[in-house]
């Protein structure tokens, strides 16, 4: 084949891939909107599930509240822990060996399938620590899912801040805290935020970590640490696997996706505001 034919084929391929990259998310979005959009209304958002079988009517408020609380509490634990570990690894650990070993462990942790976190959480928090199937047990598992992602992105963010900044700051005779809080954190803020968005998206959308640790088929909507909660992904799972209502399942999926989109947009707005 001539160079020209190759060139055309190449362009065709690149063009097609580009189209796929745009069409796939848009297509899925439209499909969700088409199928879930008609059920989506205020009542769906603000009512609890009704009907027989349960969930075929009514709304998903308890699942929204449950997912929100699980993620929020999980993040409240994982964020300081992840950033703290990252600070330790990039600022205080002197041994390069320890650093790369820790890094290997954390990366493996991030690669563990989330159902295994669920299993661990069930054995450890629910049974051994006798927390029972509860919001707190599920939140802790959520925290374990988010922790390695936040740690890795924070550490990469810290390492991306040139060592010269460290030297320039510390050469003024200030202490480590001052340097970390006023220069390092500020310089790496947007990257850490991107990591948090990634972690939250990952955690909020997965059913596996909370399936055995926090989720129930029905709750009236009360949110208490010691009580189980409904969540969006597990509700979706029940609706489909029990054949309750396809339409409501799509509605639930749409709410989950919109929730994540809203969260990502808030993060983006925050980032743009900070930059100015």
């Amino acid at each position: 084949m001539t160079f020209r034919t190759w060139n055309i084929l190449y362009y065709f391929f690149v063009w097609l891939s580009g189209l796929l990259g745009i069409a796939l998310p848009l297509g899925i979005g439209f499909y969700l909107l088409l199928n879930g959009g008609k059920i989506l209304n205020i009542a769906f958002l603000l009512d609890r599930p009704h009907g027989s079988p349960l969930g075929s009517e009514g709304g998903i408020l308890p699942a929204i509240l449950g997912s929100f609380s699980l993620t929020a509490i999980g993040l409240a634990v994982a964020l300081p822990a992840g950033i703290g570990s990252a600070v330790y690894l990039s600022e205080f650990s002197c041994s390069a060996r320890l650093k790369s070993f820790a890094r290997l462990l954390i990366e493996s942790l991030a690669g563990v399938p989330s159902i295994i976190y669920g299993l661990f959480g069930y054995a450890f928090f629910v049974l051994l620590l006798q927390m029972g199937t509860s919001l707190i047990a599920g939140s802790l598992v959520m925290a374990i899912v988010m922790y390695p992602i936040i740690l890795i992105t924070s550490q990469e963010a810290f390492d991306a801040v040139s060592r010269e900044y460290r030297e320039a700051s510390l050469s003024l005779g200030i202490d480590h805290t001052e340097w970390i809080v006023r220069v390092l954190f500020v310089k790496s803020f947007t990257r850490i935020l991107a990591g948090v968005v990634l972690a939250v998206g990952h955690a909020m959308g997965s059913a596996a970590p909370i399936l055995f640790t926090a989720a129930v088929f029905y709750s009236a909507g009360g949110i208490r640490l010691s009580q189980p909660v409904m969540t969006l992904p597990t509700h979706l799972y029940f609706l489909v696997s029990e054949g309750v209502s396809f339409e409501n399942a799509f509605g639930t999926a749409l709410v989950l996706v919109i929730g994540l989109l809203v969260f990502n947009s808030l993060a983006m707005i925050l980032r743009n505001n900070i930059k100015e």
């Binding site: 040139s162 010269e164 320039a168 006023r182 220069v183 500020v186 310089k187």
Partner: peptide, 13 residues
């Protein structure tokens, strides 16, 4: 014993 480094690095503030 203050120092002015070779490359100017303003802090993010």
């Amino acid at each position: 014993i203050g120092i002015v480094q070779q490359r100017p690095l303003p802090f993010p503030m």
